[in-house]
């Protein structure tokens, strides 16, 4: 029933670093570490190439895909941060891969061809932040109504909305 899985360690991430340096020649990867978590920033222009390289380096599962709007973040130079939380299922090693994106061109290639689990996660990011993923098989809003106009998780959208929640017909007792 049980099998022993070794704990992730810095040795493993060093091996990953070497593998990635081989497969991604000429791509600037920026590594950092915080509370035992390994993070890498890669350029958005080489997105699919990088993601494929990450998958070949053993990260078979996309744990999470999300975005951060850095509009009000102090000292931030970019508008959006796209975050891929990756997991090596066999060794349990995690890596957080990030890339930055700026207006006006908010289009990046879809990761669905690399990890099929990216499907809904990308649709959610589009729904909340308005970031477009080219090459996605079924690209539309995931959570909000299709006719919704704004992208609510952007920092310039108020918490209480712009009155969309009040825009419905009223049914009275006499009508029903």
């Amino acid at each position: 029933m049980t099998t022993e899985t070794p704990k992730p360690s810095s040795v493993e991430i060093d091996a990953v670093k070497v593998t990635l340096a081989d497969s991604l020649v000429g791509v600037a990867l920026e590594w950092s570490e915080f509370r035992d978590q390994y993070r890498v920033v890669f350029p958005a222009t080489e997105l699919l190439k990088c993601l494929n390289a990450f998958k070949s380096a053993g990260f078979e599962q996309l744990s999470d895909l999300t975005a951060v709007d850095l509009l009000e973040y102090s000292n931030a130079t970019d508008r959006f941060e796209i975050v891929y939380c990756l997991l090596n299922v066999d060794t349990g090693l995690r890596m957080i891969a990030k890339t930055y994106l700026n207006e006006p061109d908010l289009t990046i290639p879809s990761a669905t061809s690399v990890w099929s689990g990216a499907d809904w996660l990308e649709r959610e990011v589009y729904d909340m932040y308005g970031i477009l993923f080219s090459g996605h098989p079924n690209f539309k809003r995931l959570l909000l109504p299709q006719e919704f106009q704004s992208f609510p998780m952007r920092k310039d959208y108020p918490v209480k909305g712009r009155g969309e929640r009040h825009n419905f017909p009223v049914i009275t007792r006499a009508e029903s």
């Binding site: 744990s63 999470d64 999300t66 951060v68 709007d69 009000e72 973040y73 102090s74 975050v83 939380c85 689990g117 809904w120 996660l121 959610e124």
Partner: peptide, 23 residues
């Protein structure tokens, strides 16, 4: 999972939930 971005205050700048149900 939770992906939290701190911005120097006692609240999250971004509090992302990784919901198992969604996947």
């Amino acid at each position: 999972g939770y992906y939290i971005v701190g911005d120097g205050s006692f609240r999250a700048y971004r509090a992302r939930t990784r919901p198992p149900s969604l996947l």
